[in-house]
């Protein structure tokens, strides 16, 4: 059974990756669902987080790296929100502009090198070898981190500030009519969203022991896929359920990709597959309507007994 053993190891690895990507998906959830803004900054802020974390890990500060990555992501998100709210640039375009700008900034952070290897550098996972050499230690550690992020996000969205943030995506006009600046809410929301995305990027860099300037490409699509898959499969009934659904969506997405790769799909097809999955998921409503209308028309024309003009 060496084949199955190798699959099990691969799956465990992809589970761990999926948990880290879940944090990114939660970030995308805040912009895409809570604020109703598809924010493309994600591609840049993910790499920004990875770059910051890699640079700090290289000087033996892996945990500070995570914290600074989160903060740098928040700053990136704030800039995108400023473009949208203060300069009135369309949200999609603001995201694209920030994504482009971040490419250069990320290279600067990485000292003008396209990648930073972290072999033999102190990483956040190192302490696990000290306390427990079990093969699940890393997995448990990551689950704990995801649980903390989930809980913090849940309680935040249940605070007075969180309420207004959620209402902003639902109905901006109402929020302004109730005396709150929607600009400020969008700034706070995009900051937290990109902060989480950068945190996820920072953990990925340390998990795979390198940061690469192009590792964020297509990340927003993966995030959207995770959000949609999670919501469709695990439900949206309550806020807690929804957050967990998004996290599970990210993990499921990663597992499906891993199995597809294991079955022989060339890794270069990955982005194409991601794009197709998101396209199908986003067009679900339109396709359902078309099918329904077609069925109704068939049934109706069958019944028609009157005279044709």
């Amino acid at each position: 059974m060496p084949l199955l053993m190798s699959l099990a190891t691969t799956l465990q690895g992809s589970l761990e990756l999926g948990i880290i990507y879940a944090i990114m998906a939660l970030g995308v959830f805040i912009s895409y669902r809570t604020l109703n803004i598809p924010d493309l900054t994600v591609d840049g802020s993910f790499t920004l987080g990875a770059a910051v974390s890699a640079v700090l890990a290289s000087i033996s500060q892996p945990f500070t790296g995570l914290a600074l990555a989160f903060i740098s992501g928040c700053i990136a998100g704030t800039f995108t929100a400023m473009l949208t709210t203060k300069l009135k640039i369309q949200p999609l375009l603001s995201g694209i502009l920030m994504m482009l700008a971040l490419y250069s900034i990320n290279l600067k952070v990485m000292g003008n090198k396209p990648n930073i290897p972290l072999l033999n550098k102190p990483l956040i996972f190192d302490f696990l070898q000290g306390i427990n050499s079990g093969k699940y230690a890393k997995l448990v550690f990551l689950v704990v981190i995801l649980a903390i992020v989930l809980a913090l996000l849940f309680f935040f969205l249940k605070t007075k500030l969180g309420f207004v943030l959620r209402a902003t995506g639902d109905n901006e006009k109402m929020v302004r009519a109730l005396g709150v600046s929607t600009d400020v809410m969008i700034i706070i929301g995009l900051a937290i969203s990109n902060g989480l995305v950068a945190l996820s990027g920072a953990m990925i860099a340390q998990y795979q022991s390198f940061a690469d300037v192009s590792m964020g490409i297509g990340m927003v699509v993966i995030g959207l896929a995770s959000v949609i898959i999670g919501e469709v499969i695990f439900g949206v009934k309550t806020l807690m359920r929804r957050l967990i659904a998004v996290a599970l969506g990210a993990i499921l997405y990663r597992l499906v990709i891993t199995i597809a790769l294991w079955l022989g799909m060339p890794p270069t097809d990955l982005k194409l597959v991601s794009a197709v999955i998101v396209t199908v998921a986003l067009s679900m409503t339109a396709i359902k309507e078309k099918v329904l209308s077609f069925k109704l028309r068939c049934a109706n024309s069958g019944r028609y007994k009157g005279e044709r003009m």
């Binding site: 007075k160 639902d170 109905n171």
Partner: peptide, 29 residues
């Protein structure tokens, strides 16, 4: 449709209105 947030509960909508003019902190909603 303009006066309420459709994806939030009745009590959550009222809570936002009730917090009008007060600072929106991190206290429970």
């Amino acid at each position: 449709l303009m006066g309420t947030a459709f994806d939030m509960t009745i009590e959550e909508n009222l809570a936002i209105a009730y917090a009008k003019g007060k600072p929106k902190g991190l206290r429970p909603g």
